[in-house]
Structures are given as structure tokens and as C-alpha cells.
Nucleic acid binder design. Structure first.
Lengths: 355, 355
DNA sequence: GTTTGCTGCGCAAACGTTTCCCATATGCTG
DNA sequence: CAGCATATGGGAAACGTTTGCGCAGCAAAC
């Protein structure tokens, strides 16, 4: 009486044997049917599927993983989930993963390399099939150690060598060029740029894309208007302050990410300047909250959904043999999203309201 | 040559047998040592731990889960990850889970009850040990069906009956009372409230907390100033518009969540009103972006970290036998976070700038 | 010196799959 | 019609753990 099984009042979750019994086949056939092995007789397969349906059977993932060595679990490592950049990325990653029959494990590093190692550790213990490292600031030595693990990894921007690694390239230039052109068409000639921390690969890429776009538009950059920010609100506030304090300010400011742009908005608000009447501002990333700022922020969009989809794809390509004809190329575009923070240049230079 | 094992150049991940061999004990003893079974001789245990250390062994989670029936996986179901309310919740949940030796599986329902069922389905297939349902709008019939599953569940606000269910209560009143008092002290007598969709339990709770707090502060509510919003930016914009259009508007507006409050800010900005000079605004939730609005939003904070911690605790209490003396009580507080969107009431009624 | 009781270790049976290998049935060729 | 190649299903061995059960070994009691 004490042991289970006796309790037939609550039907136990059926296992593969129950299905086999009902379909009058062996468990091997059931397994083959489920895994769509081609050699199984269609009539038997139909019997099996019917049995599966009537019993409401679903295979035990643990057992499956144990014997096959494939967990169908994908790891996703991000910097910081409260950074508005990442939720959309996660969303896309989840969708794409589930679409491909995978489940995901998320971890955030909070920009701490040590925590990153712990994350990878935990994921390896859970036997993930592959990991997407979507934190943008990844350092050399850590990358080296990651290379030891014999597990597929995918990165953004950085391209470590190794047969198990993939890289997703971002075409920063396309969208940034659109933004510069947009400002140029509106009549701006004096454009400033607040970059991210330049030790980050992605920040350098964005800045050089900006410089190139300026050149192509025939605009000359004033060196004093090229400042290094921190990809944070505070950095944006501080750098805009500096621009205002210097005698001559640009009429338009582009930034390396949206948080910086929001900082710029704050700085300008405090100084009594109006956007876009006195200054035009264009951000980068087009995070969700860019729609909610005052005024709604014009920003260069980098599609997180696309990025996530690429990441899942890259991992899948490593995990499931693809036809030789298939030559993957993981690249995501950037595009300008026009809202209301950029307009015609002010006809007369802004004078700070005396306070 | 073809099969693995031969490749001793890359050391295979050691299993429990390797540890047993090195420590000169049986695998049973290794297992017992790892699981801190009391009956194992300390000297043997030490040998085992040493062997584990030198080999860098970590047990295979799949095999463990298969035989023990416990996956040490916790499910977390949320409404929508791009809603700024949830990332912090996830962060807290992850931290608390890892702290207790669990890993987490996240899914978002996008407010679709059908998708919610799929989420639960997927999680059951992964054999999660318990699920936290942190979506605020959960409906009756769905709840019924959830009750069928014999797996611990934890909810917010709603309290389904069942031996496997837990509920986390939120003390909405505390923080909302603080907000009303704050306004009252500043001198506001005319306070409006934009609620959430009233079919949501949590929205009703917040509204009634507001009404009670108004009563206790000796303030009379003008019925026309009690409006039903949608917990979205658009709802906030529309309802604030209505308040402005009606002849007489309140001097302060409280809302049922921060998105609504941000909508109010937009509406006021468009009408040319200044915050807090012309109107005071107080939100609810204190999401991260409340710090970034113009002006930074005063808001009633409900700690997502605390909420998440409670959820993990509630699940753990169901999963691991607790001493009888332990009587759990899952309750989270709310508190006012003062920023800059509430100030003294305007001395003269706001007149919309003619446009 | 024999019995009893207890402690703590090892043996081996699960857990629910996948997959290798072999047996059988079937079709085809000569 | 015999013989062989080929398709297809079943038996059973893995996968790496946990855990029930039995059995040594030892101390205490008679």
C-alpha cells in the first residue's frame, strides 16, 4: 500500500512502454516514430501516433538527454537584464529557440567577468548544447578560457577563432549613415557625437561608422564635438553639459546608445533648451523606452529580434548538420527610426536662460 | 579507433565511477557524500571530496533528475518581458533561485491565455519542480485547469485553493497611503486617480487602496476624477486628455502603474503644462525608467526583488520539507519613492495655451 | 565465548529513453 | 524454386545517477 503505482486513481504519466503496449509494437519502434526515423512502416507509425495521442504521452526530456547527450537547452548570457536593450533580445531568443525545439537558460553577468565564468559553469553543468554570449564588452583573457570549453558559442562583433565559434556581424554603418544624412538634409552642418567607452569594440565600431558617414556627407567634424561617454544616463548628462559649457555647441548631437541620448535630453531640459527646436538629438539602439521619452527619440535601430534569431540560427547550424550547400552568414542591419527629437536647426544659437 | 574513449588527449568529463575509483570507495558512497547523507564516515567523505576536487568532477544533472525525479528547475511565467516591470523581477528570481540551488526557465505569455497553457506545457515537459505565475491578469477558467497539475505553483494576489498553491500578498495600501499623504502635505486637495483595467484583481486592489487612503486623509473624491485606464501609455494619454477637457481638473494625478503616469506626462507636455509646476503626478511600480523620465517620476515602489524572493521561497517551502515550527508568510511591502514629479499645487488653475 | 544491536559500506536495481545489432520477413534475381 | 540482398522491427545494452537492501564489522550485554 505504501509504494506508488498502487494509486491508480490519479493516472501516472504514461511512459514509452505504455505507448508501445497500446500500439502493439516495441519501445524501439515508438522511439523511432517519435524521432521521425524514415525506416518505420507508415501504418505502424500511425498506430503509434494514435496511441501517443490517446495516452497524452510526452517523452521524458531528462532520459532523452541522458542517453542522447543532447539536452536541447540553449544558454543565453547577457550583461544586465534591467538594461532596456536586453529584454527584447531575450524575447526574440526565446521565440526562435522554441521554434527550433530548444528551451533556454538565461544568466546575466552584471558586467562582472568572474560572474560570467560562473554563468558558463552553471550552464555547462546543466549540459546546455550551446551558448550565446550577447554581452557586448567581452575581454581577451576570458575569451581565451571560453575557447577551452568544447561547446558551440556565438558572439556579437568579436570573432574568436575556433571551430566551435560563430560571430554575428552588425552593420553599424548603414543606420548611422542614414542618421547623418537625415540631419544633413534637415540642414545641420554642426553635428557632435558622444561615443561609448572606447575599450568596447562595439563602441569603436559605432564611432568610426559615424566618422565615415560624416566624411561621405561632406561634413567636417569639429574635434571638440567628439566626446567619449559611458553608455549611461550620467555619461550623457555630463558630456552634453560639457558641450554646452564650451563656447560653441553643435546644433545636433548623435550618441552611441539611447541611454546616453536620454542623458542628453535631461541635460538640455535642465538648461532650458527645447528639443528639437534648439537642438536635435539622435540615439542608437532604439530601445523600447525611446518611444516614451519627451519628445520621442529618433534613434538608429538595431533589431534585437533579428540579432537573437541569428544567434539561435548560428548555434543550430553548429548543432545540427546542415547541407553542404548551406553557407551561413550572420549579419544584422541597422536602420534609422524617425521620431520627433530631430528637426530643423535653430535659426539662432541657443543662449542658456540665466539662472 | 572510431569510437570515443580512445581519445585520451582531451580528458573526458569524469563520472562518479572515476571519483569512486580514485577515492577507493563505491559509487554509492560518493553519491551519499555529495548529498551530505549523515551516515558516511568523515574520513571517507574527505577522501571523496579530495577526489572530486582533483578530478574536477560535477554530477550529471540529467541522470540525477532522472532517478530522483527532481530537476531543480523552477519555471517563471511573466506577461511580457519588454514590459519594464518584469526584468527586475526576473533578476531577483534568478538570484534567489541560484542561491537555493535551482536553475530557472522563463516564458512570457504576451497576455494570451492560450500561450500561457503552452508555457506550462513546455515547463512540465522539462519537468520543472515548481512554477511561479507572476502575470498579474490571470483568469478563472485557466486557473482551474492549472489546479489539475500536481506541481507546486505560486501566484501574486490571487489565492486559488489547493494544497500545492501559494499566494504572495502585496500590501498596496501602505505605499499608496504614503503617496496620498505626501500630496496632502504639499497642499493638494484635488487628487485624481487613473486606475488599471478593473477586471484585473491587482488594479482593483490599488484603486480601493487609493480610495481608502483618501478617506483617511480626510479628502473627498470627485467621481469624475476617478478614471479607468489600461495600464498603457496610450491609456494614460487618453485619460489625462479627458481630465484636461473636462472643465475642472485636479491638481494632482495618481496612477495605477508607471506606464500610465508616463502617458499623463506626455499628455501634459503636449498641452503645454509643466510638471510639477502646473500638475503633480505620482506613478505606481517604480520601474527602472521612472528615474529617466522628465521630470523623474515620483512613484510608489513595489519591490520586484522582494516579490521574486518570496516566490522562490514559497516554492522551496513546498519542495523541501520545512520544520513544523516554520510558518511562512509571503507578503511584500510598497513604499513611496520621492522624485521630482510632485510639488506644491499651482496657485492658479492651468489654462491651456491656445493653439 | 556467544548473542544482540547498531553503524556504515557496497551491490545492484531502478529511472525512461536512444541506438546498436541481429532476426525475421519480403522482394528480387537467376 | 532456391538463394541472396534488402527493408524493418525487436531485444537489450547503454547513459550516470540515487537508493533499498543485505551484510560485514564492532561494541556491549549476557
Amino acid at each position: 500500500m505504501s509504494r506508488a503505482k498502487r494509486n491508480t486513481n490519479r493516472p501516472a504519466r504514461p511512459d514509452i512502454h505504455a505507448v508501445a503496449r497500446l500500439a502493439r509494437v516495441s519501445i524501439a519502434t515508438v522511439s523511432r516514430t517519435i524521432n521521425h526515423v524514415a525506416t518505420v512502416d507508415p501504418r505502424l507509425a500511425q498506430r503509434v501516433w494514435k496511441a501517443i495521442d490517446t495516452l497524452g504521452y510526452s517523452p521524458n526530456t531528462q532520459a532523452r538527454a541522458l542517453v542522447s547527450g543532447r539536452s536541447h537547452l540553449l544558454g543565453l548570457i547577457i550583461s544586465e537584464i534591467t538594461n532596456p536593450f536586453f529584454p527584447e533580445l531575450i524575447q526574440g531568443f526565446e521565440d526562435a529557440a522554441v521554434e527550433n525545439g530548444y528551451e533556454i537558460l538565461i544568466s546575466s553577468t552584471n558586467y562582472d567577468p568572474q560572474r560570467m565564468e560562473l554563468c558558463i559553469q552553471r550552464m555547462l553543468e546543466r549540459k546546455v548544447d550551446g551558448v550565446a554570449v550577447m554581452t557586448f564588452g567581452i575581454e581577451g583573457p576570458l575569451l581565451e578560457r571560453l575557447a577551452q570549453r568544447d561547446i558551440p558559442l556565438v558572439f556579437v562583433d568579436v570573432a574568436p577563432k575556433g571551430p566551435l565559434f560563430s560571430t554575428i556581424e552588425v552593420d553599424y554603418y548603414h543606420g548611422i549613415r542614414e542618421a547623418v544624412q537625415h540631419l544633413a538634409v534637415l540642414g545641420h552642418r554642426r553635428i557632435g557625437f558622444i561615443s561609448g567607452p572606447l575599450h568596447l569594440h562595439s563602441a569603436r565600431e559605432r564611432q568610426s561608422a559615424f566618422l565615415r558617414a560624416m566624411g561621405e556627407a561632406g561634413l567636417k567634424l569639429t574635434p571638440a564635438w567628439l566626446l567619449e561617454g559611458t553608455h549611461t544616463l550620467e555619461g550623457g548628462i555630463a558630456m552634453m553639459q560639457r558641450l554646452l559649457d564650451s563656447g560653441e555647441a553643435p546644433t545636433a548631437i548623435m550618441t552611441s546608445n539611447d541611454m546616453t541620448a536620454i542623458g542628453v535630453l535631461h541635460s538640455l531640459h535642465k538648461a532650458g533648451a527645447r528639443v528639437p527646436d534648439d537642438f536635435s538629438v539622435i540615439g542608437f539602439d532604439d530601445v523600447t523606452i525611446a518611444q516614451f521619452t519627451l519628445p520621442p527619440l529618433t534613434s538608429v535601430q538595431m533589431s534585437r529580434l533579428e540579432l537573437a534569431r541569428c544567434a539561435v540560427l548560428a548555434l543550430r547550424d553548429r548543432l545540427e548538420p546542415q547541407p553542404v550547400s548551406y553557407v551561413p552568414r550572420y549579419k544584422v542591419q541597422t536602420r534609422l527610426t524617425v521620431r520627433q527629437s530631430a528637426g530643423l536647426p535653430a535659426t539662432r544659437p541657443f543662449r542658456r536662460a540665466n539662472g
